[in-house]
Nucleic acid binder design. Structure first.
Lengths: 157, 157
DNA sequence: CTCAACTCGGATAACTTGTGTCCGAGAATG
DNA sequence: CATTCTCGGACACAAGTTATCCGAGTTGAG
């Protein structure tokens, strides 16, 4: 089980985009993070499709957050890039084989699916409790107060 | 993000194996669940490597649980088959690019990795709280009291 | 108003990982 | 002691992810 690596890039982009409504081109974001520009573009497109960022075209175009960073949860970014489907998908094994259960008896999910669903909900709830603003505040606290302003200045130079 | 489909098979096998110390061949388990025999064998080998099941060879051989079902958590089965690595792997983006952070300042995981780690722990804790015996009890309660005995009888006929 | 330059967006290839399969080594039974 | 059954690791195949490219559209300047 492995999450798409693009999630990390998307979260970093959201953090540096927080606090400045000015659009930043995808190429600039890629150079800042030293990652593949074309592939990062793909992740940003996913964020755009989910409505988390707004893209503007043209000469002074780029990406910007649509909402305040405090109103964007980590879960939203993860689901936008990695998909919202649960990691476990029940294939209804109980309805197969020589002692298969009757379909009408399987109106509720089986015990295994229930456990997996509960774990998935706990995971998502944990990610929903943290916002992009929280991440930005953590950067300010741990690395330095001027880190994010310097990053924004570099991105919009 | 998607979990290996073999996890579901492995869990179903553990449930039907609970309560009877008699070894059951992999081929029999595959026929009972109507799944690929050769691929299920792979999952059972993983369980054997993890020490959850004991394999005996020869004419009356097969697989059996090494411990009581009440002492085997769902998490152990998941980690044995799907691997124990966390879904998110931090690539230290903060140390790359024009404004890279100094390596000596990165002794602690970054905020993003911390959030992901916490979510992963919540997920694992949720799976650790349920045992194979709990799953078996759920089957008995929802589908019928004689379901598991009949399954065991079919497997050891 | 025209043009040019810059931006995003979806469609297109290479690769890693998971999926599925096969045959050989080893042990218990008759 | 031979046979038959079992597991175990090594071998192809497919799908999803990673990475890339070029065209459509828009903005801004001339």
């Amino acid at each position: 089980m492995k999450m798409s690596g693009g999630v990390e890039w998307g979260l970093h982009c959201c953090v540096v985009l927080s606090g400045s409504g000015e659009p930043v081109p995808a190429a600039r974001l890629a150079e800042f993070h030293d990652v593949s520009a074309t592939y990062l573009a793909k992740q940003l497109q996913a964020l755009s499709r989910a409505g988390l960022v707004r893209s503007t075209q043209g000469q002074a175009g780029g990406y910007a957050l649509t909402r305040p960073a405090a109103e964007i949860s980590v879960l939203e970014v993860v689901e936008a890039i990695d998909g919202a489907d649960p990691a476990f998908r029940c294939t209804e094994v109980r309805q197969r084989g020589p002692l298969a259960a009757a379909p009408e008896a399987c109106t509720r999910p089986c015990g295994i699916a229930a456990v997996m669903g509960a774990a998935d909900r706990a995971w998502r709830e944990s990610l929903r409790a943290v916002t992009i603003a929280d991440l930005a505040a953590d950067v300010t606290r741990t690395v330095g107060v001027d880190t994010l302003p310097r990053a924004r200045a570099w991105l919009t130079r």
